[in-house]
Simulated assay, not measured.
Amino acid sequence: MTTPQPRPKKPPRWLLRRPDPDAPARLFLFPYSGCGASMYQAWPRRIGAIDVCLIQPPARQNRIAEPHYGTYETMARDLVAYLRPYLDRPFALFGHCGGALPGVEVTRHLAAAGLPLPTRVFVSGQVAPHDGPYGRLLELDRDGLRAELGHIITRLGGQPSGPLVEMGLQVLVNDLEANKRYSPGRITLPAGVTALGWSEDTEIPSGLMGGWRDTSADSRFVELDGDHFAFLSAPPALLAEIRRDFGAVAETPARWEQTVG
Results as ranks from 00 to 15, higher is better:
residue 185 G to A: 02
residue 189 L to K: 06
residue 116 P to K: 10
residue 181 R to V: 01
residue 171 V to T: 15
residue 176 L to S: 08
residue 142 R to W: 02
residue 126 Q to D: 05
residue 143 D to F: 04
residue 109 H to D: 10
residue 195 A to Y: 06
residue 174 N to A: 10
residue 173 V to F: 06
residue 180 K to M: 07
residue 182 Y to D: 04
residue 124 S to C: 05
residue 185 G to R: 02
residue 154 T to M: 06
residue 119 T to D: 09
residue 192 G to L: 03
residue 185 G to P: 00
residue 186 R to P: 03
residue 195 A to K: 10
residue 170 Q to N: 15
residue 136 R to D: 12
residue 114 G to L: 03
residue 154 T to C: 07
residue 122 F to W: 11
residue 142 R to D: 12
residue 174 N to E: 15
residue 115 L to Q: 12
residue 149 L to Y: 13
residue 194 T to C: 11
residue 177 E to I: 01
residue 153 I to P: 00
residue 168 G to Q: 09
residue 130 H to I: 00
residue 118 P to S: 04
residue 156 L to H: 09
residue 185 G to N: 02
residue 154 T to G: 08
residue 172 L to M: 13
residue 151 H to V: 03
residue 155 R to K: 08
residue 144 G to Q: 05
residue 150 G to Q: 10
residue 141 D to Q: 06
residue 152 I to C: 07
residue 128 A to L: 01
residue 168 G to Y: 14
residue 167 M to F: 11
residue 124 S to W: 13
residue 143 D to E: 15
residue 140 L to V: 02
residue 181 R to H: 08
residue 133 P to T: 05
residue 128 A to Q: 02
residue 156 L to S: 05
residue 154 T to F: 08
residue 187 I to Q: 15
residue 190 P to C: 11
residue 184 P to D: 15
residue 177 E to P: 00
residue 175 D to E: 04
residue 186 R to S: 10
residue 119 T to N: 09
residue 139 E to L: 00
residue 108 R to I: 03
residue 131 D to F: 01
residue 114 G to W: 01
residue 156 L to V: 01
residue 169 L to E: 13
residue 109 H to S: 02
residue 138 L to Q: 03
residue 153 I to L: 15
residue 174 N to W: 06
residue 109 H to W: 06
residue 123 V to N: 11
residue 161 S to F: 07
residue 176 L to I: 00
residue 122 F to R: 06
residue 117 L to T: 05
residue 161 S to M: 08
residue 129 P to H: 14
residue 161 S to Q: 11
residue 110 L to W: 12
residue 141 D to P: 00
residue 112 A to P: 03
residue 180 K to W: 08
residue 137 L to C: 00
residue 185 G to T: 00
residue 120 R to S: 05
residue 161 S to R: 12
residue 123 V to Y: 07
residue 193 V to A: 09
residue 136 R to Y: 05
residue 119 T to W: 07
residue 171 V to Y: 15
residue 179 N to M: 12
residue 157 G to I: 01
residue 123 V to W: 09
residue 125 G to V: 00
residue 190 P to F: 08
residue 188 T to E: 15
residue 171 V to A: 15
residue 118 P to L: 03
residue 154 T to Q: 15
residue 135 G to N: 06
residue 139 E to S: 05
residue 175 D to K: 03
residue 161 S to D: 14
residue 129 P to M: 13
residue 178 A to L: 01
residue 142 R to M: 00
residue 167 M to G: 05
residue 183 S to D: 14
residue 181 R to T: 01
residue 171 V to W: 15
residue 180 K to T: 09
residue 174 N to K: 11
residue 110 L to F: 11
residue 118 P to E: 04
